[in-house]
Simulated assay, not measured.
Amino acid sequence: MYLTESIISTEVKKVHNLKKGTLYVFDNFIVSEFNEGIILDFDCIVEVYHYLNLYSKNKHNFGYISNRIHQYTVKVTDFMKANVLAQKMYPSAVVAYDEASKNTFKFEKQLNNCHAILCDSLENAVVYLTGVLTKVC
């Protein structure tokens, strides 16, 4: 489900249209939706970290949700290289809607020791993430 069709769409504070997708900024997390067929590479990952670092400033807890409404490729080696740019550890969730996306995420997770969890809906990801963020306080 596209974020714009979800019950949380009215809570979006800011939208950033990137070359390869869209970032939706909320009070305590960012949701990404990347375009069909793109390669999520170093430059794109750097851009995501830029916004995560920017919006999480002066906030003890802030998270990230990857809403995988389209099929695309994550360049895992670029993700590992860019990981050092994160100013803190961001609790994360990946929303996958089909078996191919779920299997891709599981493979990515094995390769880079990712701590994100897999969710089957955007709403479940928000519930998970806001629950984790509340426990951090």
Rank of each mutant, 00 (worst) to 15 (best):
I39Y: 04
I39G: 00
I39R: 06
L40C: 09
L40Q: 00
F42V: 03
F42C: 05
F42S: 02
F42T: 01
D43N: 15
D43S: 12
I45Q: 02
I45H: 01
I45Y: 11
V46L: 07
V46I: 10
E47D: 12
E47N: 05
V48P: 02
Y49H: 05
Y51F: 07
Y51L: 02
Y51Q: 06
Y51W: 08
Y51K: 02
L52R: 00
L54I: 05
Y55S: 01
S56C: 12
S56P: 04
S56W: 07
K57P: 04
K57A: 10
N58L: 11
N58V: 06
K59P: 00
H60P: 10
N61P: 07
G63M: 07
G63A: 12
Y64I: 05
N67H: 05
N67S: 09
N67C: 07
R68A: 12
I69P: 01
Q71M: 11
Q71F: 14
V74A: 06
V74Y: 00
K75C: 03
K75E: 03
V76P: 06
T77Q: 00
T77L: 00
T77A: 04
D78W: 00
M80W: 04
M80K: 09
K81R: 07
K81I: 04
K81P: 00
A82Y: 10
A82E: 13
A82L: 10
N83R: 15
N83P: 03
N83T: 14
N83V: 10
V84G: 08
V84N: 09
L85Y: 08
L85S: 07
L85F: 08
A86W: 04
Q87H: 11
Q87I: 12
M89W: 06
Y90N: 01
P91K: 01
S92Q: 14
S92F: 12
S92C: 14
S92K: 08
S92W: 09
V95K: 02
V95Y: 00
V95R: 01
A96N: 05
D98H: 11
D98Q: 10
E99K: 09
E99M: 13
K102S: 09
N103V: 03
F105L: 03
K106A: 13
K106H: 09
K106R: 14
F107L: 15
K109G: 00
Q110A: 12
Q110E: 13
Q110R: 13
L111K: 13
L111A: 10
L111G: 06
N112M: 15
N113K: 13
N113Y: 08
N113V: 07
C114D: 15
A116P: 00
A116V: 02
I117L: 12
C119E: 08
C119H: 06
D120N: 13
D120C: 06
S121M: 08
S121G: 10
S121T: 09
L122H: 12
L122N: 05
A125G: 13
V126T: 10
V126I: 11
